[in-house]
Amino acid sequence: MNMDRYRIGSDDKLRLKDYDPEDTAGFKDKDEVQEKFEDLLDRLAEQQDRLFASRSNGVLVVLQGMDCSGKDGVIKKVFGGINPGGFRAYSFKKPTEEESAHDFLWRTHKDVPAKGYIAAFNRSYYEEVLITRVHGHVSDKEARRRLKQIRHFEEMLTTQNVLVVKLFLHISPEFQLEKIRDRMENPEKLWKFDPTDLQERQYWKEYTSAYEDAIRRTATDGSPWHIVPSNNRWFRNYLVLRLLVEELEKLGLEYPKPELDLSAFPIEESSLEKIDAEKETNSSSRPLLA
């Protein structure tokens, strides 16, 4: 499986129509990747443990995509098995009055993960050059200025040992409509339905153009984008997990070597034997359950 086909670097000319949202890399169904998926979950947990122990890097996962592309689902399926103490998920909606009073990066910058931690952004600072641009709240000139600033921002994060993994969850308009209908008709999913999703569908071409421009202008060799075909949820989750694990393993994370001289803390065998004897005594003295 060639992972480079999903990677957008600094020299790439992106057109989203060249990527099939139905793509599954030749896999037929979920069963074909289930064993691989479980292995990747174990590898992710191991990398998170090394990350937290070494405190050498932070990891920021940026999830972008059209409505119903599955950003929440990725967070649930991919990160559900790691230690929640070292993971944070943030969802960015309409800016508050306080957030709007600051520069456009302020509200997201403060949630960039510290070294040792992983953070996932469900939407991100990219919304400031997407929905704002599509609806005319910022001009094309201002959007291009912000994209340049975002590029510099991500370069700064990279130099500060923050790994930025940017993922565009790619779906078709037909798939989105199917999901919206499912939310409207299924009582258990009705709470997910937002009338604005139907309104925003009218701007599909404009959003596509805005995404293409944003990805082209901010994809670098040090902070590339990844196009994730997402019409098939099982493949979306598998590909995101594999991309993330491979990026983490490239960091070469290691457990820190102890600074203490352990020979200065001898443990006598007699002490261990005493502890074992006490355990055996306590166990034998417990009353048997009737």
Rank of each mutant, 00 (worst) to 15 (best):
V74H: 07
E98K: 15
G81E: 10
E98M: 12
R55F: 05
H109S: 12
T108E: 10
Y90F: 15
K110N: 09
S54W: 08
G70K: 10
G58S: 14
F104D: 06
G65Q: 10
G58W: 09
Q48R: 10
N83Q: 06
Q64T: 02
N83T: 03
R50G: 01
I82D: 04
K94D: 08
E99M: 00
K77P: 00
P95D: 06
P84R: 07
C68H: 05
I82E: 02
L63D: 03
R50E: 08
A89Y: 07
D67F: 07
D67W: 06
L51P: 07
E46V: 11
A53W: 05
F79M: 15
D49R: 15
D111P: 00
G73R: 03
K71W: 06
G73V: 04
V78E: 11
K77I: 01
E99Q: 02
G73Q: 07
V61R: 02
K76I: 08
G70I: 12
H109M: 09
K76H: 13
H102A: 03
G86K: 00
A45R: 14
R50I: 00
V112H: 07
C68F: 05
K71Q: 08
Q47C: 13
D49S: 15
W106K: 02
P95C: 05
D49K: 14
G81R: 15
E98N: 05
K93E: 14
Y90T: 04
L63A: 09
V112S: 07
G73C: 10
A53T: 02
E98I: 10
F52K: 13
S56F: 04
H102N: 14
L51V: 04
E46F: 13
G86V: 00
D67K: 08
S91Q: 11
V59I: 12
K110L: 13
W106Y: 04
N83M: 04
H102F: 12
L63Y: 11
H102K: 14
E98P: 04
V74S: 14
G58I: 09
S69V: 05
E46D: 15
W106T: 00
E99R: 01
P84I: 05
E46M: 10
F92R: 11
D49M: 13
V59H: 00
E97T: 14
G70L: 11
P95S: 05
F87S: 03
G86Q: 01
D72E: 12
R107T: 05
K110P: 01
K77S: 01
W106N: 00
G81V: 06
L105T: 07
D72Q: 06
D111R: 12
P95L: 07
C68E: 11
P95T: 07
G85P: 01
T96I: 11
L60K: 02
K76S: 13
E46R: 14
Q64H: 02
F79K: 06
K110A: 08
G70C: 10
P84V: 04
R107K: 12
W106P: 01
I82K: 03
K77H: 15
F92C: 07
K93R: 15
V61E: 03
F92P: 08
R50Q: 12
D67R: 10
K94G: 01
Y90Q: 09
K77V: 01
G58M: 07
R50T: 02
H109G: 02
P84A: 03
M66W: 13
G70W: 13
K77L: 00
